[in-house]
Design a protein around this nucleic acid. Structure first.
Lengths: 192, 192
DNA sequence: TATAATAACTAATGTTATTAGTTTTGTAAA
DNA sequence: TTTACAAAACTAATAACATTAGTTATTATA
């Protein structure tokens, strides 16, 4: 019947996110995290199960937040404008929280984690809603969702690893990529 | 004037690639690599500078090989057919050598490594050649290169982290993604 | 005020990367 | 054939890290 304040799991997660965004996900260790929290490493085990568990939590939180960012971005928009806004918001999130986004895309130790699957399913479900007005079959819509996710994740990932070196406006590249894909969708809707 | 055979840097690299492809890049450690080579860990330092150096070499080799795979795939093809073949080859490479491809896309310790920049530049240069027949301005072509790389890398990366869960044909998703983008390129070439 | 839940700690273990210094060995020159 | 040396592989040692076990300290509540 008596607790003791101090850290809690959410505070540890927040500190881990801050550290990952600031220094990169590879720099996130229990040692560096404990130091940032002015605590000894083993104390963290009162709040997390271990480093793999912490990274799993980062992945999940990142997925939730990137979806939230897209949801926010499409308010009052529909069809191409909504998809464009969602794509820009996705990449914007990856830029603002690079370490957290890295965690989303990091090779998972556990592909089968149900919390991660749920978070991923919410992203897919959100995109399917944006596609509803296009009147696609369920199968067609799922292919498009895969395409859209590939687009935005690929762009965000390459940008995040400094893959775009030329002095060419990156926002312009992203806008063109999304618009070209959307144009292709319109142009191809008659086709098989 | 006298050497002593045994391992050499290329053999170490090959073993590292095999291990990464088999077990995943995270499982690649100097300890596991040395064990696979029936050697003690410090012996590896006769052939590589250390673990970061080894991973850098993997990145570079992966970039070269993925480009080679695309070059091979476009023989005798041009325009949309060539870009489609290149995209399929890119993803095919990531599927066949998942650990090596992971290394290509892993967050680098050293963005500025000239060897990696050179390898990346060769990929860009190759794609620019494929785009030549489209008669785009240099700037337009560079935007398209970014788009194409985003497409294929995003797809390969999501697929590699088991991001595509639905029982939906993945090759079909990839083909549609590439075709939709190419269609958008054609449709949009009059526009700004 | 006393208690109990629990956060934080110390101590210890095992893994890993890395460096320094030593031994071994195969080849090329004598 | 013998010898010398270059380089590969080794042993030993250190430092960083994650993790577990067991102990101490603290604080909200009964």
């Amino acid at each position: 019947m008596a607790a003791r304040p101090g850290l809690d799991p959410e505070a540890v997660l927040q500190a881990a996110i801050a550290l990952a965004d600031r220094e990169g996900l590879e720099q996130l260790s229990l040692a560096s995290l404990a130091a940032a929290l002015h605590v000894k490493t083993p104390s963290l085990y009162n709040h997390i199960k271990g480093l793999p568990d912490l990274k799993r939590q980062l992945s999940r939180r990142g997925l939730i937040l990137v979806k939230d960012a897209m949801v926010e971005a499409v308010i009052g928009k529909s069809e191409d404008a909504a998809l464009l806004a969602a794509g820009l918001a996705y990449v914007g999130f990856a830029r603002k929280q690079p370490g957290l986004y890295e965690a989303v895309t990091a090779p998972l130790t556990d592909y089968e984690d149900p919390e991660l699957q749920e978070a991923g399913a919410q992203v897919v479900s959100f995109l399917l809603k944006l596609l509803a007005p296009y009147g696609l079959s369920e199968e067609d819509a799922l292919h498009v969702v895969r395409g859209f996710r590939s687009l935005v994740h690929g762009f965000a990932s390459l940008e995040g690893q400094n893959g775009f070196r030329m002095g060419l406006d990156r926002d312009e590249s992203l806008r063109r990529l999304l618009q070209t894909y959307l144009l292709g969708l319109r142009a191809g809707s008659g086709r098989k």
